[in-house]
Design a binder for these strands. Structure first.
Lengths: 142, 142
DNA sequence: TTATAAATTTGTAATTGTTGCAAATTTAGA
DNA sequence: TCTAAATTTGCAACAATTACAAATTTATAA
């Protein structure tokens, strides 16, 4: 259980109710949610919460490096409370997004990078997850 | 100079005027353009060209693997006529997108990938290009 | 504590990239 | 040349995101 308040403060972000709620959700739900998923999840316990606030908050969190923004889904921005260097896989069939640990290879990604100042690295895989791949194979055989 | 017509046919795409124009532009302008950049560039020589056709064509080209879609820019989809495995760097200041060759490391990216079927791999870097980094440094010193 | 300023949140309106759709046009095959 | 299929087109609709200004909350200083 990560201490959300301390986490925000350590990133220079004042821990308001709303920011705590958004950040806490991301830290405790590693599902790479969209704005709407976050908003919908928090609505019940925070009836006055505005969608705009979720947008504003996420923008701030990303700017300050407390949250990562994923470019894996063109329809909606995805967010990740885990800012450590790891890859992502998205199934084009069912839409699930999963983490891929990089072990030692992560450092290699930094060294092979561009000249200039690197602020973020994303390694994205798209394709079919094992389940969907199997389903597809079955459909083609019958 | 790549033979656009043969390239399209080899990907199972009938080479219409419009498709040729879009594909040819991508092959000859490695600038990772947006839909609008492509549309604007082709408008003069094809006055009847529709923006929707550019969208339709790019969708088809990506589906057939003739063109790569880049997730590096959230505001507009970017396209790349070079579908070989290489990384991209985008400067957050000036917006320029440049290619990064992966040499031998490319294969490594495949092996470390997820279970299931991999259909595309993207390695994206964001940050400041050398020029913008220098400009920023100068501003901070004065 | 109280007054004042600054920061944050909120709701609505506007914007923008993209898609849906049906008519018009072009192309291929008989 | 005729007919069907594929492609293109323009416009309307959509959905994610941003702009903005008012309302609210929080911090600071008197």
């Amino acid at each position: 259980m990560v201490r959300t308040k301390e986490y925000l403060v350590s990133h220079g972000i004042r821990p308001s109710q709303q920011r705590m709620a958004v950040m806490s959700f991301l830290l405790n739900h590693p599902i790479h949610p969209t704005v709407d998923q976050i908003y919908s999840a928090l609505c019940d316990s925070m009836p006055t919460l505005s969608r705009t606030t979720v947008y504003n908050t996420l923008k701030l969190l990303v700017e300050r490096g407390a949250v990562a923004s994923l470019g894996i889904d063109r329809t909606s921005e995805r967010f990740d409370g885990d800012t450590s260097l790891h890859a992502h896989f998205m199934c084009e069939q069912c839409g699930v997004i999963e983490d891929i640990r990089l072990e030692g290879t992560g450092e290699c990604l930094r060294t092979m990078g561009p000249k200039g100042e690197i602020r973020s690295i994303q390694l994205l895989y798209k394709g079919l997850c094992p389940q969907c791949k199997q389903t597809e194979a079955l459909q083609n055989n019958n």
